[in-house]
Design a protein around this nucleic acid. Structure first.
Lengths: 237, 237
DNA sequence: ACGCAAAATATCGTATACAATTTAGCCGTA
DNA sequence: TACGGCTAAATTGTATACGATATTTTGCGT
């Protein structure tokens, strides 16, 4: 068993809905960075880990490839996606393009109880930041994304919600690859500022904050071409 | 063989890339409205039509479900998607949210040769409008969407391009279901206006035109809940 | 003649089996 | 020793087989 095994061993039982279960488990593992970019996910290994046939494993991997989280190469296998710097830029460009619009929609229809929910998310987030340990780090990564996803869900547009699901998940991969500061959620306070602006119904300011927030995350990346990955250039410098 | 058979018989040979080929063939059939919303696509039938096993047929249908073009119901089968009025609204809300941003990106990096390409698309489009016959109608539907997709491709963001692929395809379904005027591309001249604004580097005006263009398409829809679908209510009036 | 229950049919869900392709190791030769 | 081709192992691509679930039909009783 390769390194992927350790990262996945936790939800091997329960085949409730079939392939979806497996897909979700692997996606969580990728988003929480228990699986590193480039890791090979062979159909047999995945199937064995979850005690299902290759058929279901294949279906799950296929699904993840549609979300851009794994790349399947014909006759070679599936790998946890290894986004190039250019892909990374496109992901964040897409978020800058989309999220202000989502924010406007969400702010227009947000209810008091939903505002409360958002604030609770912020609390949970800061609690995790103060905590130490790897599981807290992972939970923090997920919580940071959940803020953006919750906003999308409040917007009421399930299509945009799905797009955001994909973008947030892929962002996690990009940060894992190119992030510099130990914690990507340095901009936690920015989440709070955005909620504040929403509460005051200051949409323009909220959008402004959102765009800058995304820019800050992107600014923390070192997007220089890394030919690493086993290329000869790794030995030149 | 059911009604789906006739609509698909054209690319049954050549199994080049496997499931992708089938997926694309079915998608084209849906987008060009040779397959009506609600049509049943059983795995066996699809497999037989393309002379492949159910495995590949299933993979293709699964892929289409991720794009929202077919809905698979557990233990019942796959059907060409039948978007509800609410889904339809969400699709167009998403387009209004996304396309102005894409347009800005595209206009910023567009080259003279790409402008030429766009103009050629417009010419082709008006040629098809003047022509008569069902094949011309189908080509016209596709050409109308191609305008928006070309803009997305010019924007250089492959992720947004994929989102637009999905939205345009699903729009075709919505128009097939709820469109009123015989031809949905009544707004062909609006495409030309947008290109004109891009050429003059008047981004704000171009975005303005784009938003209204999308609104016009949506305005041509009758999004009242239709319980029809073969229900007894069809005979009451 | 109508309605309900049970069998028959059709279709999907999953597993297993075989074919094709790639990758890695091995050996012979220059 | 270095190189090239060949064989064998591993992995994916596709097909078939079997079991589960939903739908339709049939037949019986009222």
């Amino acid at each position: 068993m390769n390194s992927a095994a350790n990262a996945l061993q936790q939800t091997d039982d329960s085949a409730e809905t079939g392939a979806q279960q497996i897909r979700d488990a692997i996606r969580d593992a990728i988003v929480e960075r228990r699986l590193s970019p480039g890791t090979k996910l062979s159909e047999s290994d995945v199937g064995n880990l979850f005690n299902v046939s290759r058929t279901l494993a294949r279906a799950a991997l296929q699904a993840l490839s549609y979300e851009g989280l794994v790349s399947v190469e014909k006759n070679r296998g599936a790998f946890v996606a290894y986004p190039s710097p250019d892909e990374a830029r496109q992901i964040f460009a897409a978020r800058r393009l989309i999220e202000p619009g989502i924010l406007r929609e969400a702010a227009a229809r947000i209810t008091p109880s939903e505002i409360q929910h958002l604030k609770q998310l912020l609390l949970e987030e800061s609690r995790l930041i103060s905590e130490r340990g790897q599981t807290a780090r992972r939970a923090e990564i997920k919580a940071s994304g959940d803020f953006h996803l919750t906003l999308a869900s409040i917007s009421g547009n399930t299509i945009m919600q799905r797009f955001m699901d994909e973008l947030v998940a892929r962002s996690s991969l990009v940060i894992a690859l190119y992030g510099q500061s130990t914690i990507s959620s340095c901009g936690h306070s920015e989440h709070g500022d955005i909620v504040g602006a929403i509460e005051r119904k200051d949409l323009d300011h909220a959008c402004h904050l959102m765009v800058h927030h995304i820019a800050h995350i992107e600014a923390d990346l070192d997007l220089r071409e890394r030919k690493g990955q086993g290329l000869k250039e790794a030995f030149d410098l």
